[in-house]
């Protein structure tokens, strides 16, 4: 991987993290853990992989992202704002009355958001339909699908994976954010998903597992999903929930957090210090 590109993507990830915290600071609370675990993957996607045009967010042949773990919306919004889909200042309207930035992704409210998600599992089927649609239209657009490991509790996820493999949707890339936690605690304690790599592979996906917070590994894994074939791709991202803010990483319950403005400021400061 080119060193300059790597440095640029690492900085982009840092800026997304800052954007996530800016949104939550303005409202005082938010789904911080799952937004920070997927941040590095979003930085690589929007920074180097996805064929998109921020000036033309509805361009039919663009690559599309379905963030099926819709509560990671703030991470998507930060990436989109930094890409220029809408003014950065808008991030401070997260969950304010009448906002274009609701907790969960909404394609009808936010420029650049490709699909509405929030009821876990549903984004998987939507992404399959979009990938199938692109294929039927003869477009070479690809669909990137972000699913959480807690979300993998939902039966619909597995219906959709079966469909993707059966219909040979090689333009679909599943990014499974395995941060090990869900709302009530650790996934292994709530409903143990066991070996997700083996499961996804058994469902017919070309599957790799990597450290999902390592920009270079995520970049390399995504690069190899460009080779077509007759299988959909899966990248199991082993991540840390709350990645980037030590106190959030270590918090027992970090799915959604409400802390003081001073606390958000302190965390923001720790991130902005790394920008230089």
């Amino acid at each position: 991987m080119d060193a300059t590109l790597k440095k640029g993507l690492e900085r982009f990830a840092l800026e997304i993290r800052i954007g996530v915290l800016e949104q939550m600071k303005a409202r005082g609370f938010g789904h911080v853990g799952g937004s920070l675990s997927i941040t590095d993957a979003l930085a690589v996607l929007y920074g180097s992989q996805m064929r998109v045009d921020p000036k033309n967010p509805c361009w039919a042949e663009r690559d599309k992202l379905v963030c099926s773990k819709g509560h990671a919306g703030p991470a998507v919004y930060a990436a989109l704002a930094l890409k220029g889909y809408f003014p950065y200042e808008m991030l401070k309207t997260l969950n304010q009355p009448g906002t274009s930035l609701p907790s969960h992704c909404d394609r009808n409210k936010t420029p650049g958001v490709d699909m509405t998600t929030g009821s876990l599992g549903q984004g998987t089927s939507l992404a399959c339909g979009m990938a199938l649609g692109e294929k039927l239209r003869g477009h070479d657009a690809r669909v990137f699908l972000v699913v959480g490991d807690g979300e993998a509790n939902e039966g619909q996820v597995w219906e959709a994976l079966m469909f993707a493999a059966a219909k040979k949707l090689s333009n679909l890339v599943l990014l499974l954010d395995v941060n090990g936690k869900q709302l009530d605690g650790c996934t292994k304690d709530i409903l143990d998903t066991l070996d997700l790599h083996a499961k996804v592979e058994a469902f017919g996906f070309d599957t790799v597992s990597i450290d999902g917070n390592d920009i270079e590994l995520v970049y390399n894994a995504l690069e190899r999903t460009r080779q077509g074939g007759d299988k959909p791709y899966a990248i199991v991202l082993n991540t840390v929930k709350g990645k980037g803010i030590a106190a959030v990483e270590q918090a027992k319950s970090n799915h959604s957090m409400a802390v003081s403005t001073d606390q958000w400021n302190e965390w923001l400061l720790s991130l902005t210090a790394q920008l230089d």
């Binding site: 089927s125 199938l132 649609g133 619909q156 219906e159």
Partner: peptide, 22 residues
């Protein structure tokens, strides 16, 4: 498109197809 015995997935796939203009 035969989606098999998975009605929930079928609805989602149909919606994804609608999003791509079908």
């Amino acid at each position: 498109i035969n989606c098999g015995i998975s009605e929930s997935n079928m609805i989602g796939v149909a919606c994804g197809l609608a999003a791509t203009g079908f």
